[in-house]
Simulated scan of single mutants.
Amino acid sequence: MLVLLGTVRMRAHRAGLIGLAVAVAVGSLAYGMPLGQNLAAGARNSPTAPPHWRARRR
């Protein structure tokens, strides 16, 4: 994503969506992570999620 923002000069919202797609692909293909878990992880860390969802657990 940083390469897309800095080198390619892509808009931030597009670079973010591409970064999310790459992260889902890596999680699914390289690590065998189910799609439901991928989507839940993306929703949990979304800036539009309520603050208590984004809280880090120890």
Rank of each mutant, 00 (worst) to 15 (best):
L20Q: 09
N38M: 12
A21M: 09
L35S: 01
H52K: 12
I18V: 05
P47W: 15
M33I: 15
W53C: 02
L20A: 11
G19H: 00
L29E: 10
R44C: 11
A30T: 04
R56G: 13
P50L: 04
V24L: 11
P34D: 02
P47L: 15
R9A: 13
R54C: 03
R11I: 15
V22W: 10
G36F: 04
V26T: 00
G32H: 08
L2E: 12
A40I: 01
M10R: 11
V26C: 01
L2P: 07
T48N: 05
G27R: 07
R58F: 12
R9H: 12
A49R: 05
R56M: 09
L29P: 00
G19C: 04
A25K: 01
L5Y: 08
A21W: 06
A55D: 14
Q37Y: 15
R9E: 15
A30I: 02
W53P: 01
G27E: 08
A12W: 11
A23R: 00
V22C: 10
L5R: 07
G36M: 04
L4I: 06
A43N: 03
P51H: 06
G27P: 00
R58P: 05
M10K: 10
L20D: 05
P50F: 00
R14N: 09
R58D: 13
L20Y: 11
G42E: 03
R11F: 13
R11Q: 14
R56S: 13
R54H: 06
A25Q: 05
L5C: 11
P34W: 06
A49S: 04
A55T: 14
P51K: 01
P34L: 02
L17H: 05
H13I: 07
V24Q: 10
L29W: 11
N45T: 11
S28F: 12
N45C: 12
A23E: 07
Y31C: 07
A30R: 00
A21P: 08
G6T: 14
Y31G: 01
A41D: 12
P47E: 10
A55G: 12
V3F: 14
H13N: 10
R57E: 15
V26H: 02
L35G: 02
P34G: 00
R57C: 14
N45Y: 13
P51A: 08
P47S: 12
W53A: 06
I18P: 00
N38S: 15
R56T: 07
A25W: 01
A23N: 03
A21L: 11
A25H: 03
G27F: 09
A23F: 05
A43H: 02
G32L: 08
A43Y: 07
R54T: 03
R44G: 10
A21N: 08
G42S: 12
A12V: 11
V24N: 08
R44V: 14
A23Q: 04
P34F: 04
L29Q: 08
V3H: 14
A23C: 12
L17F: 05
R57I: 15
G16W: 01
A41K: 00
W53D: 06
R58S: 10
G27N: 08
R14H: 14
L2K: 14
P47G: 06
G16D: 03
V22G: 03
I18M: 02
G32Y: 06
G19Y: 00
L29A: 04
P47I: 15
T7Y: 12
P50S: 07
Y31N: 06
G42F: 07
